[in-house]
Simulated assay, not measured.
Amino acid sequence: MAFFQFEREQILHANLEEVWDFISSPKNLKKITPDYMGFDIRTPDLPDKMYEGMIIAYRVRPVLGIPTTWVTEITHVADKHYFVDEQRVGPYALWHHQHRIAETENGVLMHDIVSYRPPLGFLGSIANALIIRNKLNEIFDYRKKVLEELFDRGE
């Protein structure tokens, strides 16, 4: 049973409050997800701000356009510091994603830590090496680009 971690950091030239306001709104997740994933939030009447215990249902098409249901729970929130989402229904045997932000002299440091276990044991490890790790890099590269366009002011 394989277990993997994926980490990514990014500096945004913005203030802590505006970055937090953006990332703590579940409605903005679609904006930072590549279009080819067919991301669609299925939770009706989604609030503007997340909270601990919040359940969010999505429909995504991460591989070969095959639709997948993904349900996450926001398990921890520390205002303007971090939040954690954990998969409750979806393709992974385990998915735990920490979104951390901190103000620095250069802007806001975003630090993501994704801890995950693919399904199917040994076959999941092969899928990670061939597909999953590359997809995570693609998704976070896209997110980095979009967030830079939204927040960086050429500083």
Rank of each mutant, 00 (worst) to 15 (best):
H97Y: 12
E148V: 12
A57Q: 10
G90L: 00
S25F: 08
F6D: 01
V71A: 03
D85Y: 12
I126G: 08
I66A: 00
E18W: 05
K27M: 04
K49G: 10
W20T: 02
R117V: 15
F4K: 11
I32P: 07
L29N: 06
S125W: 13
Q10W: 06
E52M: 11
L136F: 15
I126W: 14
E73Q: 14
L94E: 06
M54C: 01
N28P: 09
H76E: 15
R143D: 09
K145R: 14
Q10K: 10
N28L: 04
I74L: 05
Y142I: 05
L147V: 02
D45Y: 10
G121L: 06
I74R: 02
P118D: 00
Q98G: 06
D45R: 07
L12A: 02
I139A: 10
E73W: 04
M110R: 03
M1L: 04
N137A: 11
P34N: 12
G38W: 00
V71E: 03
H13E: 07
Q5D: 13
E9G: 12
A127L: 13
I101S: 04
Q10I: 07
R100H: 15
E52F: 11
T72D: 03
K80C: 13
W20Q: 04
N137S: 12
V19C: 02
P118N: 02
L147R: 01
T69N: 13
P118R: 00
F83V: 11
G65Y: 00
T33S: 12
Q87N: 10
D112F: 07
Q10F: 08
L12R: 02
D48T: 12
E148R: 14
E9W: 07
D35I: 04
K80A: 13
M50T: 03
V71S: 03
P62T: 02
V114D: 01
T68Y: 13
F151S: 09
I74S: 02
V71G: 01
N128A: 11
Y116D: 07
L46S: 05
S115F: 01
D112T: 08
M37K: 05
T75Q: 05
D45G: 04
L120E: 02
E52P: 13
V60P: 00
A2L: 14
K144E: 14
F22D: 09
V84C: 06
G38V: 01
F151E: 10
S115L: 04
H96V: 08
R88N: 03
V77E: 03
A2W: 13
A93C: 04
E17K: 15
I11Q: 06
Y142R: 07
D152T: 08
F6L: 02
H96F: 13
E155H: 15
V63K: 02
M37D: 03
D48H: 11
A127N: 03
I32D: 08
R100M: 13
Q87I: 03
A78M: 07
